[in-house]
Amino acid sequence: MTVYGIKNCNTVKTAMDWLKQHNVTVDFHDYKTKGITAAKLKEWSKQVGWESLVNKRGTTWRQLDESEQAKVTSEKAAIDLMMEKTSVIKRPLIEQNGKVIALGFDEAAYVKVFKK
């Protein structure tokens, strides 16, 4: 199981702490140091939709000017943006065996996904 995110993100920290407290072992993939491929983003987009992957509530999105935001109307445009600015990817994203099992942090959803 791999958690994708950014080490300094508070939501990622909260999710990682929750996973640790519940004895869920994960690998961590930091977008800032390891990047992300267009192929991986496309794979996720097929599973959860590109609209879900773009974090429009985050600082990175809000810092884009309106014309840049307006260009994000397709999967290709979203993937191009996420490749250029990995901070705009909603996080954390948790993948197991190639399948997205969680996006963002919602404790109730985590309880359902990770209950043993």
Rank of each mutant, 00 (worst) to 15 (best):
T2C: 00
G5K: 08
G5I: 01
I6S: 03
K7E: 11
K7H: 10
K7W: 05
N8W: 04
N8I: 05
T11M: 09
M16Y: 11
D17R: 14
N23T: 10
V24D: 00
V24C: 02
T25A: 11
V26Q: 07
V26M: 07
D27L: 09
H29K: 10
D30F: 06
D30K: 04
Y31H: 09
T33W: 00
T33R: 07
T33F: 00
K34Q: 14
T37Q: 06
L41I: 05
L41Y: 03
W44F: 07
W44D: 03
S45I: 03
S45R: 02
S45W: 01
K46V: 04
K46L: 09
W50E: 07
S52I: 06
V54N: 05
R57M: 11
Q63S: 15
S67I: 10
E68W: 03
Q69R: 15
K71F: 08
T73W: 08
E75A: 13
K76S: 15
A77K: 12
I79D: 05
D80N: 14
M83F: 02
S87Y: 00
V88I: 15
V88D: 03
V88Y: 05
V88M: 14
R91S: 07
I94Y: 05
E95L: 06
Q96N: 10
Q96R: 12
I101W: 01
A102H: 03
D106P: 00
A108L: 08
A108W: 06
A109F: 02
Y110K: 05
Y110Q: 08
V113P: 00
